[in-house]
């Protein structure tokens, strides 16, 4: 079947099998920033933004994306890196890096909804992203830094 949707602001028309997982489809087409972790909706490495909301792409069938808007980590970077990506690098908020793209997208989805979330809200937004290296301290610091910068701009 044909799947028509918007991926990172570009319209795509892909041929897909109805039972295909959206995660597999993205990776097959070269979007390798989205990772396969547990495949059962527990770890969050496959997080993408679908119509403004963070979701697990490993639980999503490809046809469910019909006519919707998808953002992957590749779509955050326009001419330069997204503020979140820059901040994660500056702070050094990653070690093995496997969870990082999912974590950044979870944070991005939160910031799209609310530009000045409290620390507790950030923590809640990250509960679906497991990280076994950083202990979450530096990722939280990186996200808070972006929010601080946002305040300065206003």
């Amino acid at each position: 079947m044909q799947l028509k949707f918007i991926l990172n602001k570009e319209e795509k028309i892909w041929d897909v099998q109805p039972e295909e997982k959206f995660l597999d489809l993205l990776r097959k087409n070269g979007y390798l920033g989205v990772k396969y972790g547990c495949g059962s909706g527990n770890c969050g490495t496959c997080t993408i933004i679908l119509d403004g909301k963070a979701i697990y792409s490993c639980l999503l069938l490809a046809p469910q994306v019909q006519g919707k808007k998808v953002i992957t980590i590749e779509g955050l970077e326009q001419e330069e890196l997204d503020l979140l990506q820059e901040s994660f690098i500056e702070v050094g908020a990653m070690q093995c890096g496997y969870c990082t793209s999912g974590m950044i997208l979870s944070a991005k989805a939160l910031l799209l909804k609310k530009n000045n979330p409290a620390l507790e809200e950030i923590k809640t937004a990250l509960t679906g992203n497991l990280c076994r290296c950083t202990g979450y301290v530096k990722p939280l610091k990186a996200i808070l830094k972006v929010i601080e910068k946002g305040k300065l701009n206003v």
Binding site: G41, N42, G44, T47, L50, K53, A54, I55, Y56, L59, L60, S106, T124, A125, T127, G128
Partner: peptide, 9 residues
């Protein structure tokens, strides 16, 4: 019930 990503779905 579940993590945010799952609650969104």
């Amino acid at each position: 019930c579940a993590a945010l990503q799952l609650r969104n779905m």
